[in-house]
């Protein structure tokens, strides 16, 4: 109970920090809408001479990509940057003198940031859907939301594990940029996985990649109905949580914090 209360306080605090910057919020929303507008015209161009590509019509493909990009903007948290910075600065020393698991602490903070970003970005997303004449039609909202939660867990755990590399490497820019690129491309955030060869699609669905974005988006847009993909996604989420926990323990065992 006390752990839950602590998580709530951390999530609330980080949510407030994320949401307080009014000018930053405005710039992000304007930039986001501009990006969506460009995305619309890009996909419109792709479908100009062909009403169907990879079995998807223009509206379905655009809804998929726009939703995936919105998810990327909302549920991807800078937990990797934050953790790496705290490790390099030695700030992690203060956190280790508090009675909370490092992964749980960062997870709660990431959740707060995601909730805050959702509050100001979802209206912009709704505005874009209205302007482009698109809509989300999940066959089951609970399943779609569960898939979103799993997606958050997967992305957070990955970011946390990458952030732990701050104990080993000085500059994580290359690692984090590569991770974001792989997660977006193989996760179906840049283009729907339906555009990939069938064998690659099967492989990406069995591996965790499809479950970063493609699975929750497919549930949200009504492309997926059954619970099979959600079950695979949930299994991967559990595996990632376990791996993040073990990595955290291993790294803390080898921990060295230099200086005062």
């Amino acid at each position: 109970m006390s752990t839950l209360r602590a998580c709530y306080q951390l999530a609330l605090a980080n949510g407030r920090v994320t949401a307080t910057d009014r000018k930053g919020r405005l710039i992000i929303c304007v930039g986001y809408l501009l990006g969506m507008w460009l995305l619309y015209w890009l996909w419109r161009g792709l479908y100009l001479n062909d009403p169907s590509r990879a079995g998807l019509d223009f509206a379905t493909a655009l809804t998929h990509v726009a939703t995936a990009q919105t998810l990327f903007a909302i549920i991807t948290t800078p937990a990797d940057w934050r953790l790496a910075r705290e490790i390099r600065s030695g700030e992690v020393a203060s956190q280790l003198t508090q009675p909370m698991n490092l992964a749980l602490r960062h997870g709660a903070m990431a959740l707060g940031a995601v909730a805050a970003k959702a509050l100001y970005m979802l209206p912009a997303f709704a505005l874009f859907l209205w302007w482009a004449g698109l809509n989300l039609a999940p066959s089951s909202w609970p399943v779609a939301l569960a898939s979103l939660v799993c997606s958050f867990v997967l992305l957070f755990c990955l970011a946390f594990i990458v952030g732990l590399a701050g104990f080993l490497a000085t500059d994580l820019w290359g690692i984090i940029a590569s991770k974001d690129a792989v997660v977006q491309f193989l996760g179906g955030a840049l283009i729907p996985l339906a555009f990939f060869p069938p064998a690659a699609q099967t492989l990406l669905h069995v591996l965790p990649f499809a479950h970063f974005f493609n699975t929750p988006v497919a549930y949200l847009t009504g492309q997926l109905h059954g619970p099979e993909s959600l079950l695979i996604q949930a299994c991967w989420a559990l595996a990632f949580m376990l791996f993040a926990h073990l990595a955290s323990l291993q790294v803390q065992r080898k921990l060295v914090v230099f200086g005062a």
Binding site: A6, Y8, Q9, A13, R16, V17, E91, S94, Q98, M100
Partner: peptide, 20 residues
Amino acid sequence: RSQLWWDLPVQDSFRILQAL
């Protein structure tokens, strides 16, 4: 090093520590 939250009022940092 600091255990306080840079962007939040002092009382909020203390409430977080109270919960932790």
